[in-house]
Each structure stands twice: as structure tokens, then as C-alpha cells.
Nucleic acid binder design. Sequence first.
DNA 1: TATTGTTATACTCTATAACTATA
DNA 2: TATAGTTATAGAGTATAACAATA
Lengths: 156, 156
Amino acid sequence: MTSPTAECARQVLEVVPMVMHAIRTEMRGHRDSDLSVPQFRVLIYLNRHAGASLSDIAEHMGLTLPSLSKMMDGLVTRRLVTRQPDPRDRRRITLSLTPSGETAMQAAYAGTQAQLGRRLAALSPADCLKVTESMAALREIFGSIRDIKARQAGKA
Amino acid sequence: MTSPTAECARQVLEVVPMVMHAIRTEMRGHRDSDLSVPQFRVLIYLNRHAGASLSDIAEHMGLTLPSLSKMMDGLVTRRLVTRQPDPRDRRRITLSLTPSGETAMQAAYAGTQAQLGRRLAALSPADCLKVTESMAALREIFGSIRDIKARQAGKA
DNA sequence: TATTGTTATACTCTATAACTATA
DNA sequence: TATAGTTATAGAGTATAACAATA
């Protein structure tokens, strides 16, 4: 007999990767946007935090600076993001969405949301509400990377 | 005003990647197992379907044969999986876990589940139940890759 | 000396295209 | 001819280590 929490963890561990796979497959191959999930997340972050530095994003997303730096190369090359020096601290760079970047982000968001919605329509209204509320609860727990880092630091 | 389904899709789209990131980070760096999420999923599948062919797994997981073939190279090299010819159809191969593979899979499962459980312990009992039930509902929708393929075929 | 970012290197994941062997 | 699998090639995501520039 497992505890409710352990059973919950078990379910999350098995089901989240399945859902993630569907999201990834859907996101890739949106003719207009064609973004990877990490790229998409970066664009969403920049949409809400224009002018963020690389470190800001890395900390928020839990990625290393080299990983992000390389990802940005791709986004800058595709003209979805601009990378400019920060005059106040010349070690830093300032990242922002271009109009194309904003368009791509919104297209990816809308397209993926719509496609997900089509599949989620199979849920009963009660289950739909339950899933929505569950996501809100999980966001509280998994939303902040700082917490993860703090945990790992404490553990080590 | 968005529909409940659209709101649900929105939440799933934002939160699932966060949870996935935590799972990936946790899975990597388990000293014993050190598996990627896709590797982990393959091992789980083989644990439940010993002797499966490459095509079986590819269809279940929604991956192409070359992708899986290469993944198997790594698992076979690490002695977690055996790859043997199928005597009844010599085009096919028969994949199975080695004892090490089973051990690694179980270690990764237990370790990740425990770590997830520690974070999920922050949920109220009601939310914990809600999440568990939501995962069951989502598994119904996203569990089978065949459905996705059928959908894509129908769409095209 | 500490921080920000980049470059170099290496691995995994994933795909498409071209190929081999078998049915 | 169709199916199962591999090899070749390519690109993204990720990490660590080493480095440059700035604070």
C-alpha cells in the first residue's frame, strides 16, 4: 500500500512525459513558427520580460549559460530575438523579441493550445476542471527554478 | 472569456514543461542509473514487454526507427539491453532488459519517484488526489501513440 | 576576485534519406 | 514489392571546461 503522495508521484512520472511528447510533436511542424519547446519558453519569457539578460533567463529556466547562449545564437540568426549590449553593465546583454519573434511566439502558442484543446475536449467537464486546477497546484511547486537550485544546494 | 477546455489547454501548455524539466533534471545524475527520460521510458516498456521488436517500441513511443535504433546502440553498449535476432522473422530483432538494465530502471524509477514525492508533499491532500486523478484522465488521452498517428493521418 | 557571456568539446534526441536483408 | 532495421547526415538541447571582458 503506497501513500497518496507516492502514488501521485508515480502517476506524474509516467503521464507527464506522455503529455510532453504530444506537446513537442505538436509544436514542431507548425509551419509558421516551428519552434522547439525550449525556444518557445524563451520567447514567452522574453515577451513578459523584455530586455532580460542571459543570466536572468538561465536562472528562470534552470539552464546553464552556455546552453542558453547557444540557443540564443539560433534565435538571433532566425531574427526572432535581438541581442544588444547593456550600456550600464557592459558584461551583460539585453535580449528582446523582434516583431517576428512575437508573431512566431503567438502563433506557436495559439496553434499548440488549440491542438491541445482539441484533444482535451475528450475530458468530462469535471475532469477538465480537475486538470486545470491540478496544473495550477503543480505550477506552485515546479514554477520556480530557484527553489530547485536551493534544494540541490541544500542536499549537496 | 475562454472556454474551460481552452483554459485547461493553456495551463497544460505552460505547466507540463516545468514539471518535465524537474523530472529530467532529477533523472539525470542519479549516480547508479543516470538515464535520460527517453532511455528510461524504453526500459520501462521493455520491462513490461520483454522481447519486443524495434518497431513495437517505435510505434508505442511515437519515434522513428532510426532514432530508436541509435538509442538502442547506447543502451546495448551500456549493457542495459540485449539485441538478438528473431529466429522466426530474421528481419526483426528481439530486445530485452539485462539484469543491469532492470536494476538501472528500477533505481531510476524509485529515485525519481521519491524525489518527486518529496516535492509533491507540499500539496494538500485534496490537491494531491486531484493531481493523481488528473493524471489518470490525461493518460487516457495521451497514452496511446497510435491515436496520435491516426489523428495526424486523418488530418493530412 | 567574482560575474557575464562566449567558445570548444562532447553527448543525447530526433529527423530524413539512402541502404541492406528478409519476407 | 513491402517491411525491419542500420548507416549517414544534420540540427537542436544540454552539460562541463576553458576563456575573455568587465565589474
